[in-house]
Each structure stands twice: as C-alpha cells, then as structure tokens.
Simulated assay, not measured.
Amino acid sequence: MRRPLNAGSAHGPAWDRLLLTGTLLASCIFPASSELPSSAPPDIVTEGAGAHLPVPRNRDGILSTSWFRGHEAQQETTVFSPEGLPGPGHTGREMPGAQGSLVIRNMTAQDAGSYTVVLDARRGRRSVTEQIHVKAYEVLLYTFPETSQGVIRSELNYSVILWCLTQIRPEPVISWTFNGQPRGTGEKLIIRRLSREDLGTYMCVAKYNQEQHSSKPVDVSLPEVNMDSTDEPIDLDPILTVSGGSAIALLLAGSAGLVVVIVGIGFTIAQIQSSITYLQ
C-alpha cells in the first residue's frame, strides 16, 4: 500500500540535512578541476590606454590569486605568482590591482589576447579566462605622387603633397618630421617646388593628451636613371701617351721624316728650275 505524499513530512529536515551534506562533499571534491566561463565579453581598449581585469564573482574564501597569459595556467606564461611576484610573462607594465585584479598600463597590440586568473580558495582551485582586444590607432599617409614601396619619386621643381588622416577622436594635433626633425603642422604638408634640400624621410605624428601615434615613414627621392650596366663606356677621343725611350725614338723618327720631306721638296724644286733653264 502506497503512502500519501505527505506521509514522510516528519522526516523532511533529516533528508534536507543529508542532501546539503552531499552537496558540500561534492563541492569539495570537484571544484579543483573546474573552470568557470569568462565573466564578461572581451574588453576593447585602444593602444596606449590602460586595462583593468577584475577577479570575477566575490572573493569570499579566496586565499590567493595568480595571473597567466593565454588560456592555460603555465609556468612560462606567469604574470604574477600566488605570492604576487612577477613571472616570465611579466612585461613591466602589469601591476596587481585591488582585490586580486590585474592592471595593465600603456596597452600595445602585443597585449591583446586571453588572460587566465587562478583562484586558490578554501574549497579548491578555480580558473577564469578574460580576453582583451586592443584597437590600434591608425595614422594613414596619402601622397601625391603616389608612393611605391614607401618611396615618392619626383622631378625637381615639381610639387609634392603629403596628407595625414587619423581615426583618433577628438581631433589630435598633427605635426610632421623631416629626417627626424620638426617640419610644420597641420593635416597637409605641401612642397611646392621640390629641391634637393627637400629629399629625405617624412613622417606624420598625431598627438592627443599624453598619447602619440605616428604614420609609416615615406622617402622623397628623385626618379631613378635607367642605365644598361652591360654597356661599356666608349672614349670618343683616345689619346696615345708615350714616355721614356719610346718618346725619344718617336721624336727622332719624326725629325728624320721631316728632313726627308724637306730634302725631297728641295730636290723637286731644283729639277723644276733645271727644266725651265733648259727650255729657255
């Protein structure tokens, strides 16, 4: 015969205590290998800014925290050990925050990715993975004439225009450098008549508060001269030079030749005169 559903109500508290004891035992056995999901969607920060990764949930019962780069807690990726000491993954810009959190200053593109915090608590060890996306400020440089592999080629006395565009808001202060030295301000840098003194490397610099971002450098140069390296230079007027005994021999031969010519001319004149006298 079946009992009514409320027949065991007198034993309800005992069963509740038994279930609670089983739950506590299970929580003490299994949490050592548990991994909690990320507490929030990936944070998006800009280059040069700071990031703050808090410890998720409450810190009740947490004895220590340690931070690692990546999805796994490995010795070679340790940022901070449970004792708060920097590890191999520490770059010098990370520092412990309040309540076991992690603070990263002056974020760079290399800082993007996942960070894992390991919580050592009275009930065991838990790990939580946080993600950071770093958005880099883009400083673009448009030119006329167009660049080819970072080089602008233009003839002398022609105009060269450099135009700097950024995605930084509010608008930053834009300046230019030429061979590492200041060269004007404003979005556009116009070289109206290119001279040899203007040949060199230009770069656009965007400043906002304490942050500074630069474009890729561009070189302004003269056009390349097309020369066939297989052609050998030809000397149109070769000059023969002699010295020493060769020069003396050449001089004597020239003198002898001149004497022969003079004698021949004299002989010819004498024959002509003899012929004239005979005819008379």
Rank of each mutant, 00 (worst) to 15 (best):
V139E: 00
I168M: 05
R153F: 00
R59A: 10
A253P: 01
G244S: 13
T23I: 09
I161Q: 01
L162A: 04
P54E: 09
I272T: 06
N58W: 09
S154I: 00
L53H: 07
S243H: 07
S275F: 05
P238M: 03
A109T: 07
D237V: 14
I132R: 01
V225R: 10
T77V: 12
C164L: 03
K135E: 11
K135A: 08
S275R: 03
D60S: 04
Q75E: 14
F144S: 10
K207N: 10
R153N: 05
T241Y: 12
Y158L: 08
S114M: 10
G12W: 13
G48A: 10
P56L: 14
P217M: 06
T91P: 01
P31Y: 03
R123C: 04
M227H: 13
L162P: 00
S243D: 14
W15P: 01
I272R: 14
V259Y: 14
V261I: 14
E47V: 10
L53N: 01
T77W: 00
W163V: 02
A49M: 11
W67C: 02
G8W: 13
I174Q: 00
Q149G: 12
T277K: 15
A10R: 04
A247M: 15
P82A: 09
Q131W: 03
V103T: 04
K216W: 01
G84F: 11
A51E: 04
T65Q: 07
S27P: 01
T77C: 08
G254Q: 11
G48D: 07
D111L: 04
A206K: 00
Y158N: 12
E155R: 12
L85G: 03
L258Q: 09
L189M: 13
G92A: 02
R153S: 08
G22S: 09
